[in-house]
């Protein structure tokens, strides 16, 4: 995406919110651009849904401000905001059929009958549910209800679509299908999506930008690659993908010591003798013949995962998780090593 031409759509400034004694959001700052697929990623209770509800106008922030295209929207009620929401468990109107559910927002705006007909038909086609117009909502499957909920929101052509864990109630297969579907719809409509989830796989698959949250704080904002390859701290590393996490001490501009050995690494910007967290992704750990690598150990567990093996290598100091396409017998003595660019150093938290 061309960074220079991007147009700021939403800006959050020092957003704070608490319910009673519980502080939900702590002075959050975030910028969201036009036509972005932004994912708020975090465990339950991290404040991601509250943040979404504040953007949608269902909750008020205690302090701080939300700007839509430079305008403070604190006093604008939900029905006057340029946002539409796809709710958790869809919240479709049970007393209306598929057509009327999708047409709801257009009827509110008192649009012409023929225009409504055209728009709803188009939208149902987009979500792949043509011909379902007169069906009752209760007779749809979870995936179909999901699509209707998206259609109902998108037909209003919002500037921003807010999605609150929309795939949470679906089974795995359907969830994966819907991830691609959502990404396609977002590209087609060129609408900004703000997507709330606790599922890292969903976040990695769909997002242009991931916002990793914890306890009301934003830990890191970045593209899926940035988040995966360069997590800022142990928490982000643990939340996105599998990893070997350990403590180390910086021994020079490109040197770090752990497991009683000094390793070459690429990371810069830490002080000598600073304690850091070290992350090594399992796919970056190489198993080599005994004596050929840096650390010796024994294969203690092998799990077949389809396209790769998940292997535990027990060494003197710890167990390393390794992902490799080659199978090793349990009990075999091996060595492991890492390339310098695979050793990722992070600030301690």
């Amino acid at each position: 995406m061309d960074g220079l031409q991007r147009h700021v759509l939403i800006e959050l400034k020092d957003l704070t919110k608490s319910f009673g004694k519980n502080v939900i959001l702590k002075k959050l700052n975030l910028t969201i651009y036009e036509n972005e697929f932004v994912t708020l990623l975090g465990p339950s209770g991290c404040g991601k849904t509250t943040l979404l509800r504040i953007i949608g106008g269902f909750e008020r922030a205690d302090s701080g401000a939300v700007f839509f295209e430079g305008k403070d929207v604190a006093n604008i009620p939900p029905h006057k905001r340029p946002t539409n929401t796809v709710f958790q468990k869809y919240a479709l109107f049970p007393h209306l059929n598929v057509f009327e559910n999708v047409a709801y927002g257009l009827r509110v705006k008192k649009m012409d009958k023929n225009v409504i007909q055209t728009k709803v038909t188009e939208m149902l086609k987009m979500v792949g549910l043509e011909g379902f117009e007169t069906r009752s909502i209760q007779k749809l499957s979870g995936g179909q209800q999901q699509r209707i909920a998206i259609a109902r929101a998108l037909v209003n052509e919002p500037k921003v679509l807010l999605l609150d864990e929309p795939l949470g109630a679906l089974d795995l297969k359907l969830r994966q299908e819907m991830q691609y579907e959502l990404k396609r719809i977002q590209k087609e409509t060129e609408i900004t999506f703000i997507y709330v989830t606790h599922d890292q796989e969903e976040a990695l698959t769909m997002s242009d930008k991931i916002v990793v949250m914890r306890d009301g704080d934003i830990h890191q904002v970045g593209t899926p690659q940035e988040i995966y390859n360069n997590p800022v701290n142990k928490y982000v590393a643990k939340f996105v993908g599998e990893s070997n996490l350990l403590s180390g001490i910086v021994k020079g501009p490109t040197k770090v010591k752990f497991d009683g050995m000094t390793f070459e690494c690429e990371q810069q910007g830490f002080l000598k003798d600073q304690e850091v967290d070290v992350m090594i992704r399992p796919e970056d750990v190489k198993i080599v013949a005994l004596g050929r690598g840096k650390i010796d150990g024994t294969i203690t567990d092998v799990i077949f995962k389809g396209t790769y093996f998940e292997i535990d290598v027990t060494t003197a100091n710890r167990v390393y998780a390794v992902e490799t396409t080659q199978e090793y017998p349990i009990g075999k003595e091996v060595s492991i090593r890492f390339y310098p660019d695979c050793i990722h150093l992070m600030e301690k938290i």
């Binding site: 949608g56 939900p78 029905h79 468990k89 919240a91 479709l92 109107f93 509110v108 929101a153 209003n156």
Partner: peptide, 21 residues
């Protein structure tokens, strides 16, 4: 309550929401 919120979200006023939902 989410049905009420959904209606507001879709642009309906409180009054409209009451009569339609």
């Amino acid at each position: 309550n989410r049905l009420i919120e959904a209606s507001l979200d879709l642009g309906a006023s409180r009054k409209y929401t009451f009569f339609k939902v």
